[in-house]
Simulated assay, not measured.
Amino acid sequence: MSERRACRALRFPRSSHRYQSVRDDRTELRIRLRDLAASRAHYGYPRLHTLLRREIWQVNRKLVYRMYKEEGLQMRRKCPRRNRSCQVRVERPAAREANESWRMDFMADQLISGQRFRLLTLVDSFSRESLAIQAGQRLTGDDVVAILEEVTDQRGCPKSIRVDNGPEFISKSLDWWAYFNKVKLDFSRPGKPTDNAYIESFNGRFRQECLNQHWFLNLKEAQGHIDNWSDPNSHSAWYGK
């Protein structure tokens, strides 16, 4: 049956049958939203909307929420099984000069009394130089920002910092600091420490050569041993070189 006879039998206008939508599907915005959601696995649509607004996208929250639902970007409350791939790994280009890319991570140790404390380690990806190691009983996102401010006052800001998805690294304090200083926070995939292998290698050597060699009475003594180990004049402050 021809189109004319079918539309006449159904009493359906041929103009409606041949109509082509002129509505903008916002392809570029959808691609950017997917990229942001992939790089920040623990961000919901409100924080993704904030990131889009910081760029060139003048969109409201309702539109971002609708596209967030249509693209299936809702956060998964349960961890996926090991045999299910959440995201295809994308190789990052290697750093070509010092101060281009940094890597940051947390470690844990304990005093003689059994009291546990945390350590923040910061390493340059190109030179493998230890930029900062800070010990503290409780290190928050604000403490991370304070340490970065101290380091950047001397060296300047990097282009990117590779971090995991810990609560201190996804905090609003660090997010605002990175935005105002034009630093990209490069998040590794959840449960994939190999995405940040340089800092993991550094932490292993730091634990072997420093933490496992001393007993610490208090945080002040621990920080003193750490500062001596990470002295720029010491070979231990550089690894892989």
Results as ranks from 00 to 15, higher is better:
149 E>D: 15
149 E>T: 10
169 F>W: 03
48 L>Y: 12
141 G>S: 06
9 A>D: 06
13 P>A: 12
16 S>M: 10
60 N>R: 10
180 F>K: 02
192 K>Q: 02
70 E>P: 00
68 Y>M: 12
3 E>T: 11
238 W>L: 13
82 R>A: 08
9 A>H: 09
98 A>K: 10
97 E>K: 13
17 H>M: 03
203 N>G: 01
227 D>F: 07
124 D>T: 05
50 T>H: 15
44 G>Q: 03
25 D>I: 07
144 V>Y: 03
155 R>H: 14
108 A>E: 13
226 I>M: 01
145 V>E: 05
14 R>I: 06
149 E>K: 14
173 S>I: 02
27 T>I: 14
68 Y>C: 07
177 W>V: 01
149 E>H: 11
71 E>R: 06
12 F>Y: 14
201 S>N: 15
215 W>V: 05
107 M>L: 14
117 F>D: 04
119 L>M: 15
204 G>M: 05
217 L>W: 12
70 E>K: 12
167 P>T: 12
150 E>I: 04
60 N>S: 04
238 W>F: 12
80 P>E: 07
207 R>K: 15
58 Q>E: 11
36 L>R: 12
61 R>F: 07
117 F>Q: 01
32 R>W: 11
168 E>Y: 01
80 P>K: 11
178 A>W: 03
215 W>C: 07
86 C>Y: 11
116 R>E: 00
117 F>V: 00
165 N>A: 02
197 A>D: 03
176 W>Y: 03
57 W>H: 14
84 R>Q: 14
205 R>Y: 08
102 W>F: 01
164 D>K: 11
47 R>E: 00
84 R>D: 08
83 N>V: 04
197 A>W: 09
66 R>H: 04
117 F>Y: 10
53 R>C: 09
133 I>E: 04
77 R>F: 08
212 N>H: 14
29 L>N: 10
45 Y>A: 02
123 V>C: 04
23 R>K: 07
13 P>H: 08
92 R>V: 03
156 G>R: 11
142 D>P: 00
15 S>C: 08
75 M>Y: 08
189 R>I: 03
